[in-house]
Design a protein around this nucleic acid. Structure first.
Length: 554
RNA sequence: UGACCUAUGGUGUAAUGGCAACACAGCAGAUUUUGAUUCUGUUAUUCUAGGUUCGAGUCCUAGUAGGUCAACCA
């Protein structure tokens, strides 16, 4: 299989840079701000940055962009490291923008010396006023003409803590009429008397993103600094600092962020969902966070495959969530062991099966496995089957149980429905069936051809468990375009809890294991589960052509 | 009424001036002790108008549409 994969635009740039000898090897970085949990959008960035370095034999740093002490916490640092590792990537160095505070301060002084930065006493409102608008040029600040000496002293005083928050800022001196708003004397440093998660109280001035990011890249000699499209206008500033400071010329490249149908990726709004109790936490299995999808049962391999499949480009996109589900199913189909679980039980009594008899019937764990293994399932006279696997008046191509009709109990026998028992209200409460002894799975000499195969559990041996069924969090396909408050688009049925009957083998299920509940979907043990109370999350449903055709009823 | 980015099936992504392809989704069929998986087939695509060229999805110009930019956030 000669797989001639075409290159994405970043791979093309890198291959060219390597071919021309511009770089001997490449260096990328994944630069999250530790102010929240990572989500699927970050996964795309992680796979990109680490994937590129892996492919071209380079390195990737994990760098925390921690220049704003009031939003950042160590808790987030730990969860981010955990998520990156879980996704399957190993960073070269763990670094922090705050590692460079001394260096960044020196850079600022350098700019002041060159007459390219000044201390401004304007209020934030005044500075906003001076900026102008995209269609109108800005105005120079009255403090723009301060001398180098004055600026140096003032900036040192800012650092020394002689001013309150907001009293002064350090600004670059560029061009207040520049067509790019980011070039209109951007703020370099602001005063924040706040405790930083790593540097504590050592600093009361903190660099802005634009004054920290490119320089951090330069310090680490990042060759390809890859970020999302909204940073395109920042690139000019990024290059300007590097040029004026005469430091390593890292280059910034931008790609389109991930958008997914029925999903929202905004950190701020996700935080709102958590804080307002619409979900049960950052790791709620309905959340698009990595901790959420992990708990739900998505695998790192499936996520990496997904990131590979969605590709990388510069145009806005809205990825169909069914592609993600496809990737998850494809992986789980290979690795998940099969189990039988009855969600809505209907009792079946096999009238010609001895009351005191129990058989241990082998059932294959995974038909996809190279080396097949089996477990045994106890079979007895009384069984639970799924309510929807019986219909008193079945439509044309209904392969399941109906009065007088045959079905196979998976890995067991073929049974025939002989009698339907109902309660006073006319609800079916029990089926009395006969089994065909010669139809035993693996030793079938009955010669019967049965189209329908259903799952079951033995009443005498089945155990209880809770099952949590998840559906999309939002009803609107494109949440970026959704009108009104995003919360009004929440799906009220995104979580449905059921109490089900599980086969005995499931009693020893462990966290991190993946199962396919036959015909019901892929499941994993939830982190809330205990030995006494088993709880399973539905990771994803199975494809279901029958239900899709609307023939499943209900 | 500015600057910048983008425009290929329903959704993504390729095609690097030379036969518009791959995946998902959809539809149809075969196989199947999961109406799963697997396999086969199938529907559907270059924003518009000019230009360059033997030849344009690709290059140029203009238009149109969508997105981004005016935090002491990142």
């Amino acid at each position: 299989m000669t797989e001639e994969k075409s290159l994405n635009f970043l791979e093309e740039i890198i291959e060219k840079d390597l071919a021309t000898g511009k770089y001997q090897s490449i260096a990328t970085r994944f630069p999250p701000e530790p102010n929240g949990y990572l989500h699927l959008g970050h996964a795309k960035s992680i796979c990109l940055n680490f994937g590129l370095a892996l492919k071209y034999g380079g390195k990737t740093n994990l760098r925390f962009d921690d220049t704003n002490p009031v939003t950042e916490e160590t808790e987030y640092v730990e969860s981010i490291k955990n998520d990156v590792k879980w996704l399957g990537f190993q960073w070269s160095e763990e670094l922090y923008a705050s590692d460079y505070f001394d260096q960044l301060y020196a850079f600022a002084l350098n700019l002041i010396q060159k007459g390219l930065a000044y201390v401004d006493d304007s209020t934030s409102e005044e500075i906003a006023e001076q900026k102008g608008t995209p269609t109108q040029p800005g105005k120079n600040s009255p403090y723009r003409t301060r001398t180098t000496d004055e600026n140096t002293k003032l900036f040192e005083a800012m650092k020394a803590g002689r001013y309150r928050d907001g009293e002064k800022v350090l600004r670059a001196k560029i061009d207040m009429a520049h067509p790019n708003m980011h070039m209109r004397d951007p703020i370099l440093y602001r005063i924040k008397h706040a405790r930083h998660h790593r540097t504590g109280d050592a600093w009361c001035i903190y660099p802005m993103y634009d004054f920290a990011h490119g320089q951090s890249d330069a310090i680490e000699q990042i060759t390809h600094s890859i970020c999302t499209l909204e940073f395109v206008p920042h690139r000019e500033l990024y290059d300007w600092f590097i040029q004026q400071l005469e430091i390593y010329p890292s280059k910034q490249y931008e790609f389109a962020r991930l958008n997914m149908t029925y999903t929202m990726m905004s950190k701020r709004k996700l935080l709102q969902l958590v804080n307002e109790g619409h979900v049960h936490g950052w790791d709620d299995p309905r959340m698009p966070t990595l901790s959420g999808v992990r708990r739900r049962g998505y695998t790192p391999a499936a996520l990496r495959d997904f990131c590979e499949k969605i590709g990388v480009a510069k145009r806005d996109n809205l990825i169909d969530v069914s592609l993600l589900e496809f990737c998850v199913r494809e992986h789980l189909n290979r690795i998940a062991e099969r189990r039988m679980v009855v969600f809505d039980p209907l009792k079946v009594v096999i009238t010609n099966y001895p009351e005191d008899k129990t058989e241990e019937l082998p059932s294959e764990n995974n038909p996809e496995a190279e080396i097949p293994t089996t477990r045994t399932m106890p079979f007895g006279r009384e069984l639970w089957i799924e309510q929807e696997d019986f219909l008193e008046n079945p439509p044309k191509k209904y392969f399941r149980l109906a009065p007088g009709q045959l079905v196979r109990l998976k890995s067991a026998y073929i049974i025939r429905c002989e009698e339907v028992i109902k309660d006073a209200a006319g609800t079916v409460t029990e089926l009395r069936c006969s089994y065909i002894p010669e139809s035993k799975s693996g030793h079938d000499t009955s010669g019967l051809q049965v189209k329908g195969v259903i799952h079951w559990v033995s009443c005498a041996h089945a155990q209880r468990a809770e099952v949590r069924l998840y559906d999309r969090l939002f009803l609107q396909e494109d949440m970026n375009a959704a009108e009104g408050d995003f919360r009004q688009h929440l799906n009220p049925h995104s979580l449905v809890t059921k109490h089900v009957w599980i086969e005995p083998a499931l009693a020893t299920a462990k966290t991190g294991e993946h199962f396919q509940f036959l015909r019901m979907g892929y499941f994993c043990l939830d982190t809330d589960a205990t030995r006494e109370k088993l709880i399973f999350n539905r990771t994803v449903t199975l494809r279901d052509m029958w239900a899709k055709a609307g023939k499943g009823g209900n």
